[in-house]
Simulated assay, not measured.
Amino acid sequence: MTAGPMVIVFLGPPGAGKGTQAARLAADLSLVKISTGDILRDHVARGTELGRKVAPIMERGELVPDELILAIIREELSRMKEVRAIFDGFPRTTRQAEALDELLAELRAPVNATVLLEVPEEELIRRMLKRAELEGRADDNEETIRRRLEVYRQQTQPLIDYYSARGVLKRVDGVGDPGQVYCRIREVI
């Protein structure tokens, strides 16, 4: 599965290792990793028009409106001669997934696989507290982490159902050494 258009979506709770695993898979399969969070933070840092629009939204901890996110995705995909991408942190809602499917249909590049990294909640909390300590992220305290996990559960269950109904959902145990988790991902892709 390395030639032609390819689209992989990574789902999983905060702290599951989506970014790490998506970056590794992107490198191995010559895919572009598209992280809407990274793109938005870059626009904010550069002070672009988009950055000025989304900065206050992000500072309040709210989700950036779908139309802005979808415009970013369209722009990223339109730069590609052939669509070969991994989505990390997108889509977050069924509406976004449907819009992504419409865009990908236009580009003749449907979702090949949706990888769901599954990690028990207590392990996620442990990982994120450790990450917060290492990166000095004051916003990642246990109360905030638990709230983020609850929001994730509410938003993501419909996405799991959506991709499962399309026959592209691949559940992967996200516990263990990152190399072991990556081997599990490669087995299902």
Score class of each variant (00 low, 15 high):
182 Y>N: 10
31 L>I: 12
77 L>G: 04
137 R>Y: 11
170 K>P: 00
32 V>K: 13
25 L>I: 10
73 I>Y: 04
161 D>Q: 13
79 R>E: 10
50 L>P: 10
83 V>C: 06
188 V>I: 13
81 K>G: 15
65 P>Q: 14
138 A>N: 06
45 A>W: 01
70 L>G: 00
123 E>M: 13
30 S>Y: 05
130 K>H: 12
99 A>V: 01
17 G>P: 12
61 G>P: 10
61 G>Q: 14
175 V>Y: 00
5 P>D: 02
171 R>T: 07
184 R>S: 02
4 G>V: 04
120 P>V: 06
145 I>Q: 07
68 L>N: 02
145 I>A: 01
150 E>A: 14
167 G>F: 13
29 L>G: 03
180 Q>I: 12
180 Q>W: 09
66 D>P: 01
159 L>M: 06
76 E>C: 00
173 D>P: 07
43 H>D: 14
111 V>F: 08
138 A>F: 11
88 D>E: 05
15 G>I: 03
98 E>L: 11
155 Q>W: 03
62 E>A: 09
100 L>H: 06
91 P>Q: 11
90 F>C: 07
48 T>R: 13
157 Q>K: 12
159 L>E: 05
159 L>W: 03
49 E>K: 10
94 T>F: 01
86 I>L: 15
184 R>H: 14
184 R>F: 12
139 D>A: 11
110 P>T: 03
57 I>C: 05
